[in-house]
Amino acid sequence: MLDFRLYMAQRLTALIMAPLVLGHIAVMIYAIQGGLSSAEILGRTQGSLFWLLFYGLFVLAVSIHAAIGIRVIVHEWAGLKGAALSALTWATGLGLLAMGARAVWAVTAA
């Protein structure tokens, strides 16, 4: 159910997410401390390749990581297996990726 390939994908995405989570929290605290408005935040993120890559990578890592995690929980707690389990894994990953990518694009597109 969780073979070596999935195990590595989940561990490697965790490694990617760790610094991104810290960066994300730091940015949130900074934005609130400074009293930035939505317009001011969008002014800095729109057209920024850096923020596109930062949150784009974050969303990709979260989609892979969470899909594998959900896969394990659903298998062990609900007994789903085989093709249905794979379908749920893909649906979770692609769903998160689509929603996340849309959000990232919304704040970084120029």
């Binding site: 159910m1 969780l2 073979d3 070596f4 999935l6 195990y7 394990v72």
Partner: peptide, 9 residues
Amino acid sequence: VSGGGGCHN
């Protein structure tokens, strides 16, 4: 031990 039922579970 790397298969679907292996140690990584």
